[in-house]
Design a protein around this nucleic acid. Structure first.
Lengths: 326, 326
DNA sequence: CTTTATATTGGAACCGGTTCCTGTTAAATA
DNA sequence: TATTTAACAGGAACCGGTTCCAATATAAAG
């Protein structure tokens, strides 16, 4: 291992001079050249630990994800990574495997590793989270959920749901089933439902029934047949694309043709929704872009700049073939 | 920030004694208790940088992935992460974004960060890769590709393709189109095709034509209509599930019913293949399990234990509805 | 009651950087 | 030419741990 002392010796200068060379200190042209040569010859790169030990921080941003194998997570990660790399920051991914306890652990572990900031792709924010945030004294940014005490970037769930609601009303649907998720998840479980409800309010002739399922495709697959049997809606509005996928499969297996016999919509804009037959109409969120935004705000936070408490990421209603005009 | 010196002072002992306490050194019961108390009171945890600086290594395993938003990658990562956590190792994910140059960069960056080992979810191994591996002197394990000089874990592409080939022959298909990918990718481009070819050899009455496409769904979507038009096979054997997804969509848009008018198979066992209508018959690889195996071997390598040069991960042919019996 | 072995502990050096302070030298000013 | 100033370089201390070596104390052996 070649160290700064080696470089100093070979260049005939002091360690401090080499350090100054590496960190834009004032150096004469002559010594600059000497050091430059030695470094090029040897391929020396500074030891990061020694640097971080002294600096008491790193250029690493910790990102905690609930799961790695989800479209939303991975697209967001890509965006974060992309943006951070542009500014010579590093991303450290930490997987909590949908376990809140592990999520808390990860927060402390990242803090111990002196990451410069933490981006949390959140599902729920508990008291334990808030306690951890207070303790570690490191910039935190939530993505996907919102909390008034913490910088948050959310997809515009409410608005998107509202627009989607207006859209399906405009297509003539009046007997509507909404298939949501647990209200512990504020963004997906509450905001989307509320936005949708608001869209329905303006329409007296419509009848909406709300159901709940889990995030897994298979859960929707099991639940949808009953919903159809007991309520027989003209459209099934699903709170996520995965649920929509399960619903579509369930419809097929009941021999229903989508959209002729039943319309279906999703939320998220997962790539596969385009590849299904029929393509699924959905409220698309720009996860990668959101990731980039998150990374950018985080870097601002680290530099002590002020940013908005709440950042809204964009959405778009993507019309495909899964919604019939009545 | 509370340091080992603080602990030492408060416990009335020397730094070295505290260090010994933390690292299973020989300590009297009395001092052990004293130090224990102080540490519990203060919530002290050692500074990782200081430790790594001295130790010249870490308990971090670097994992390089070509992309984050792929089923295979993310499932493999989950497996690696799971297994490493069990042994108190950490996983550091590095995304090369399908750019070989960046992949090489990542190897050097990880080495600089003194990771204990590198797991590379590989697509191609170039001369540059080998050079980097030689230079960094850190245990390397390839996953998904094989190289005789380097420890490798591969999915049993050849065997899986062979079995899949025999299977579709048994279903009566004789006019067969194989839709593969570039031969630069040994595992997916070469091995799968070869295994399939071998299966076809024993069947004189069959006619197979080989086509090539990219890894993207849309590419297959564009290419498949021409293949059907010019060759009109009874079955389309796709080298990946994504290609199969594109093929299925293409078939639908040409008005063909799968499997009645055209059968389709995939490779990989992605979750969505089950959710399609019809479910796609595919050679399923156990990515998560493979990830666990990879992590386990890597830890052996780090401990200087000997392991097999080549590890084979399991596969299974999953029969669904996308293949017709002729 | 010595002598020797063993268990603990303290002190100092070291890992590889950064930074503050001081000294030297050359350039600018009087 | 004498003096002030600025630019640059060197030395030492420090970041927070680990580890080697020597010192002390205690127990076992003679």
């Amino acid at each position: 291992m070649i160290t700064i002392a080696d470089i100093a010796k070979r260049a005939g200068v002091a360690k401090s001079t080499v350090s100054r060379y590496l960190n834009d200190g004032s150096i004469s042209e002559a010594t600059k050249r000497k050091i430059e040569n030695v470094i090029n010859e040897t391929g020396y790169t500074p030891n990061t630990f020694a640097q971080s030990l002294k600096a008491k921080k790193t250029n690493i941003i910790g990102t905690i994800v609930p799961r790695l194998d989800s479209y939303a997570s991975s697209r967001t990660l890509i965006g974060i990574d992309e943006r951070l790399k542009e500014q010579n920051y590093q991303m450290l991914i930490s997987n909590s495997n949908q376990c809140l306890e592990r999520e808390i652990d990860n927060i402390y572990t990242l803090a111990k590793q002196k990451v410069a900031g933490i981006i949390l792709l959140a599902t729920q924010i508990t008291e334990e989270h808030l306690k951890a945030f207070r303790k570690i004294e490191i910039p935190i940014l939530l993505v996907g959920q919102q909390h008034h005490d913490i910088y948050s970037l959310i997809h515009n769930d409410f608005e998107a749901a509202y627009q989607l609601g207006r859209y399906i009303l405009s297509k003539g649907h009046r007997r509507i089933a909404y298939l949501g998720v647990t209200e512990l998840d504020i963004a997906v479980g509450v905001k989307r439902k509320e936005g949708f409800k608001k869209a329905m309010e303006g329409e007296p002739g419509s009848e909406v029934k709300y159901f709940e399922t889990g995030f897994k495709i298979t859960e929707a697959l099991n639940k949808v047949p009953n919903i159809i049997a007991e309520y027989n809606p003209t459209i099934l509005v699903c709170a996520t694309d995965n649920i929509a996928l399960g619903a579509l499969k369930a419809a097929y297996s009941k021999g229903l043709i989508v959209p002729n016999d039943l319309s279906i919509t999703g939320f998220g804009g997962y790539e596969v929704t385009e590849m299904m037959h029929p393509g699924i109409t959905t409220a698309k969120f720009y996860y990668k872009e959101a990731g980039r935004m998150a990374a950018q705000r985080m870097m601002k936070l680290i530099n002590g700049e002020e940013i908005e408490k709440l950042i809204l990421s964009n959405y778009e209603i993507i019309e495909r073939e899964s919604v019939d005009t009545l």
